[in-house]
Design a protein around this nucleic acid. Structure first.
Length: 272
DNA sequence: GAACAGGCAACTC
DNA sequence: GAGTTGCCTGTT
């Protein structure tokens, strides 16, 4: 089934701009992954993105945020020096509507870690504690629910090799599972308020909270600042630049900047 | 073996 | 409030 035009949805840019950790391409350029309980395979051919999945089209249109129009935000970004380059290079990036719990948990794991290791830890977490589903002859695992992890002790996560992050995962799972922290409710409050609420959990500071707010709660104005973005801001923007001036879709600009910075870093021969 | 990594928190001055 | 350090683990 055709999901989108490849100009609207660019798979490699979307999956490799740092927002998600569960999508992988095989040697033929076919991407596979899981969203919610649904596995899928995607590939690009003749200017279209094709998807194979048991979930309805509406599920994936929502996941890939295909009913949002990014063009007016792009127009604003094109007026900003350097960000215009990032915006051109990042066309087709979609800010995924990921499950809030998966995003929160994944970005707890991400701290002080590189992408390949984050992916490894997340994959082991899903294998160990998620639900198995068979699709196209392969076994996929969903991201474990907060309830499934809330029952565990820190030692039970030793197999993940997540190190000092394990107690943070358990603590977050307990709060979400008990209802003390209602992630869905944070979708309806401001990005600032959602971020401050998340920061009350152990091991969650500005960066992790902002990532969860942007990628899990889809507050598009959230602007997570990591080392790449910090470097880019320092290099290309005045010292007093306020990312909030990029408007209600500032998070999209952040993704363009992140992708472009890493992409040009790769070309210059750096790694990760 | 030492330094470092997409970060946090506790501690120092 | 700005700077420093330890934290698990894996890689260089």
């Amino acid at each position: 089934m055709i999901l989108a035009d490849s100009k609207q949805l660019n798979l490699i840019r979307t999956f490799e701009c740092g927002q998600c950790f569960r999508w992988n391409a095989d040697e033929n350029g076919v991407w596979s992954g899981v969203a919610g309980e649904y596995p899928a395979e995607l590939y690009e051919k003749d200017g279209s993105v094709f998807i194979d999945s048991d979930a309805p089209e509406s599920f994936w249109r929502n996941y890939f945020d295909l009913d949002s129009d990014y063009s007016s935000a792009d127009g604003l970004f094109m007026t900003v020096p350097w960000l215009d380059e990032c915006t051109r290079a990042g066309q087709g990036i979609r800010i995924l509507r990921q499950d809030p719990w998966e995003a929160l948990c994944s970005f707890i794991i991400s701290q002080c870690n590189n992408i390949s290791r984050i992916k490894g830890i997340v994959e082991r977490l899903c294998r160990e504690f998620g639900n198995e589903t068979e699709f196209n002859g392969r076994i996929f695992c969903s991201f474990p629910s907060p309830g499934a992890l809330a029952e565990l002790e820190v030692e039970d996560l030793a197999c993940l090799h997540s190190g000092y992050r394990a107690p943070y995962i358990i603590a977050a799972a307990k709060k979400v599972s008990s209802g003390e922290l209602d992630l869905d409710a944070l979708k309806t409050v401001s990005a600032d308020s959602a971020r401050e609420t998340l920061k009350t959990l152990p091991g969650i500071g500005d960066k992790v909270a902002n990532c969860a707010v942007l990628f899990g709660l889809h507050h598009m104005e959230a602007f997570p600042v990591d080392v790449w973005i910090r470097r880019a801001l320092k290099e290309h923007f005045p010292a007093d630049f306020d990312p909030a001036s990029l408007g209600p879709m500032a998070g999209l600009a952040q993704q363009y900047m992140f992708y472009y910075s890493r992409e040009s870093g790769r070309k210059a021969g750096e790694n990760d």
